[in-house]
Design a protein around this nucleic acid. Structure first.
Length: 501
RNA sequence: GGGGCCGUGGGGUAGUGGUAUCCUCGCUGCUUUGGGUGCAGUGGACCUGAGUUCAACUCUCAGCGGCCCCA
């Protein structure tokens, strides 16, 4: 990443008009089209984006299955009476629910909600399946789409009225087990972002007044976008016993007593794709880390009339070797395009590694490898091509992650006092952390003028305001004595303020 | 939630009360291959609806859609 000329160019372009730049990348890199007229807020996910989703899905699904989750599928529609059984869910989603009132030309007796989330239809079945403590923990997940009729402006992958996601739902014998589950899933989300998408995230919980409807605690991973806004990148909820009570999940415990279960739910949507596009891409188009790239390496042969056969044969051999080694490789042997065109096209489409093979390489028994993110070019031996390509793909990932991490580190600032928080957010965007008393009223003075909010509060273990023994600053004034940046009362926790998507 | 800008071939733009130009794009042929090769031929558009008008892509209103700013 020593090429700071390009880095400057990128930064300027993305920061100048991030919204339009994003829309352009989405369209031109063939990721999505807008939905039909009259269906504002819906998108058509094109094969390249869907392939990214499939990679992400495969990565996360494997983690789920290794940790006791089974996949299932529940109906798209939820009867109104089901939805109403948990009142927070109704209130929380009511304005955004799409309803079916008619089918086969007949008015339905009970209207059906198009699921905005599936707690209300999954939990009743979990209730049927749980009889004894031996049935717990019980974990199901479904990959599906949900519909939330957003009033706010939509943006491909970030906010659409229908979106793809997975939603996991679990039941546990104890509060503590449910908490462990909640954090397990959050860690897996963190891993998707950091290990697969090369996007560092901040991990923590939402303020108590901003939890998922009906939830006791909502945990979140937050990612920083280049325009300085935070994206809620995945959430994992400890639902306490409210859903278990509403839908009657009880079990006979070892001591033969009937007990109420504790439940969780957790979801990650294709918003991850939006964050992925935003974070790494540049003025040349899409940039993808190798793990999610549908094509990891593209071979561009360069020939003259008299060298064509030799170059192509050599290139085909390399392609075969890479394919055998499990690299997702494509040989671009189109006759009607010249190399320059192909270079630009593959850069637009975000193929991480380009392999150039011309007469020079053939003569010397070599290959030229070019990294998509920064154009770094290396000549390697034909011998051992699979290993060197693998090494370069790893290096690419590391470059992307390091760049994103550096950005994030530089965008977390501290402030004390309302004006300083507002000023810092206004000038730089990003995150501003400040000591906070925990009261919603102290968020308002930031939220009102600026539409920034507390997007995340670090977990107790990560919060310097909280002692290792769990005492908060107020309860242990001797060693801390921090006060809330807004009201001046004793601070309980550190709050991260940011504008958000 | 409030305000503003905008909608013209596939994409990006210009212009006009009398349906249009440039750059690109697709196709065909030749040419070309280490950063979007060149030439020729050819194809293709004024978001939708209503109103004003002899005439609307242009003006007015509404709708749909996009972008930006503020809350």
């Amino acid at each position: 990443m020593s090429d700071d000329v390009q880095e400057l160019g990128i930064t300027e372009s993305k920061s100048h008009n991030t919204g339009e730049w994003y829309a352009e990348v989405v369209r031109k890199a063939g990721l999505a089209d807008y939905g039909p007229e009259g269906m504002s807020g819906f998108i058509v996910t094109r094969p390249r984006a869907y392939a990214i989703w499939e990679r992400l899905q495969g990565f996360l699904d494997a983690k789920f299955k290794n940790t006791g989750v089974q996949n299932a599928y529940f109906p798209l529609f939820i009867p109104e009476s089901y939805l109403e059984r948990e009142k927070d869910i109704v209130e929380g989603f009511d304005p955004e629910v799409a309803w079916v009132t008619e089918a086969g030309n007949e008015e339905l007796e009970e209207r059906l909600a198009v699921r905005p989330t599936s707690e209300s239809i999954i939990t009743p079945y979990i209730s049927q399946w749980v009889r004894s403590h031996r049935d717990l923990p019980l974990r199901v997940n479904q990959w599906c789409s949900v519909v939330r009729w957003e009033a706010t402006e939509t943006k491909p992958f970030f906010r659409t009225k229908e979106f793809l996601w997975q939603e996991g739902h679990t039941a546990h014998a104890t509060h503590e087990d449910a908490w462990t589950e909640t954090l397990t899933r959050l860690d897996q989300y963190e891993s998707v972002y950091e290990d697969l998408l090369a996007i560092p995230v901040l991990k923590g919980q939402k303020p108590d007044y901003d939890t998922f409807p009906g939830a006791e605690t909502t945990t979140t991973v937050e990612a920083l976008m280049p325009d300085g806004k935070s994206v809620q990148a995945g959430t994992s909820h400890h639902l306490g016993q409210s859903f278990a009570a509403a839908f009657d999940i009880t079990f006979a415990d070892e001591d033969e007593n009937e007990r109420l279960a504790h439940t969780t739910s957790w979801g990650l949507s294709w918003r991850a794709i939006g964050a992925l596009i935003m974070t790494h891409s540049d003025e040349q188009g899409l940039v993808l880390p190798p793990g999610v790239a549908p094509t990891q390496a593209v071979i561009v042969p360069i020939w003259q009339e008299d060298t064509k056969d030799a170059v192509l044969e050599y290139a085909e051999g390399v392609a075969a070797d890479l394919d055998d080694a499990g690299v997702r490789v494509e040989l671009d042997d189109r006759d009607e395009r010249n190399p320059g065109f192909k270079f630009n096209e593959h850069e637009l489409n975000g193929i991480p590694l380009r392999v150039e093979i011309g007469p020079n390489e053939v003569d010397d028994g070599e290959l030229t490898l070019v990294h998509r993110p920064d154009g770094e070019s290396t000549v390697v031996d034909r011998e051992g091509v699979a290993a060197s390509v693998a090494a370069h793909l790893d290096e690419l990932y590391a470059k992307l992650y390091a760049a994103a991490e550096e950005t994030l580190d530089g965008e977390v600032r501290e402030a004390d006092g309302r004006d300083e928080i507002l000023g810092t957010l206004g000038q730089h965007g990003g995150y501003v952390k400040a000591p906070w008393c925990g009261d919603e009223a102290c968020e308002a003075p930031i939220k009102e003028p600026m539409a920034a909010e507390i997007v995340m509060v670090p977990f107790e273990d990560d919060d310097p305001l909280v002692d290792a023994d769990g005492d908060d600053a107020a309860g242990d004034a001797g060693s801390h004595g921090e006060t809330c940046a807004i009201c001046g009362e004793p601070a309980q926790r550190t709050a991260y303020f940011a504008k958000s998507y």
